[in-house]
């Protein structure tokens, strides 16, 4: 099946049924991938009380922006309840701000500190270097749930629950994956420039910041994007550590909004408006940095 493009040339040129079939299935798969997003938007644009009519209509029913207004808190609670919603706004702007602050903290911290460590592991010699690195790598295998409770207990005893620092800290100083990922890149770059600089009398930090880092911006930005998306999407940890509104991130806010169901019936139009807004930042990032994300695919399985 897997033949390269320059595959065997046959004498006759029959109708390439196989190829047509393959294209058809590929298109089908793309449709299945994209359709739910359309349905999300379609529902978000549907008037709340019209949700039960034309449930199969591919277009919004009684198209309206009221749901976006509702989740953004632009109408009163009384009106919200009258529309069959919860009357409780998700305070989307605040959650968005919180998500951005948290993600930036983690990205900046993790990338900086992991890059420093990765450079040390790749280039410098110091006692127990290989042993320490080996232990880091071993930590890659530890599942998140094992760390959840002890880390929660730690953050709680530091009085950092419901602070950004409390949510960010465990991933802010390092992750084993980030160190491993960057070390591989540092090992791969040419050391001649560095050595020249060192011989000229430059010290390690100068070399690191002025020579090495500029050469590894592609790798670092790739890591930054992966870290950003992982932090942005994280749910369980912020749910446990920071459920208070002033630090509540988007994923947790959506979970809370989901639970604000009036009498068991989810407020679907409001929820879909909320999810639509929540994925816009990811989409923007993807449009700008999509290539990086695709290039990083080989490394991202460790998350």
């Amino acid at each position: 099946m897997t033949a390269p493009t320059q595959s065997v040339q046959t004498q006759r040129r029959p109708i390439p049924w196989g190829k047509i079939l393959a294209w058809a299935s590929l298109v089908l798969i793309l449709c299945i991938t994209l359709f739910p997003f359309w349905w999300m938007l379609r529902t978000a644009l549907t008037y709340p009380k019209a949700l039960f009519q034309n449930t199969a209509s591919l277009l919004p029913v009684q198209t309206t922006l009221i749901n976006f207004k509702r989740v953004l808190g632009l109408i009163s609670a009384q009106e919200g309840v009258a529309l069959g919603g919860t009357g409780q706004a998700i305070n989307f702007i605040l959650a968005l701000r919180n998500s951005i602050i948290l993600s930036m903290m983690v990205v900046v911290g993790q990338v900086t500190f992991s890059a420093m460590a990765a450079y040390a592991f790749a280039r410098l010699r110091f006692p127990f270097r290989n042993q320490i690195f080996a232990i880091y790598i071993a930590a890659l295998m530890v599942p998140g749930i094992v760390m959840l409770i002890p880390n929660f207990v730690l953050v709680r005893s530091l009085n950092l629950t419901n602070t950004f620092l409390g949510v960010a800290l465990p991933a802010m100083l390092m992750t084993p994956f980030a160190v491993f990922f960057l070390r591989q890149f540092f090992l791969g770059i040419n050391r001649e420039v560095e050595e020249a600089a060192l011989i000229d009398g430059a010290d390690v930090p100068v070399v690191f910041f002025q020579v090495v880092l500029p050469m590894t911006v592609p790798a670092i930005s790739t890591l930054a994007v992966i870290t950003f998306i992982n932090t942005w999407n994280n749910y369980l940890w912020p749910l446990v550590v920071a459920n208070e509104e002033k630090v509540r991130v988007l994923t947790v806010a959506l979970g809370v909004f989901r639970s604000q169901t009036p009498q068991g019936a989810p407020d679907w139009t409001g929820l879909m408006a909320g999810t639509t807004l929540a994925i816009i930042p990811t989409f923007l990032l993807f449009i700008l940095m999509g290539r990086k994300i695709l290039d990083s695919i080989q490394f991202t399985g460790f998350k």
Binding site: A117, L124, I135, L154, L169, M174, D203
Partner: peptide, 17 residues
């Protein structure tokens, strides 16, 4: 320098792993 550079990550590793 090696120790200085790995220090933050080492603190993170010890504290949170």
């Amino acid at each position: 320098w090696g120790l200085i550079l790995i220090l933050p990550s080492l603190i993170g590793f010890i504290a949170f792993y």
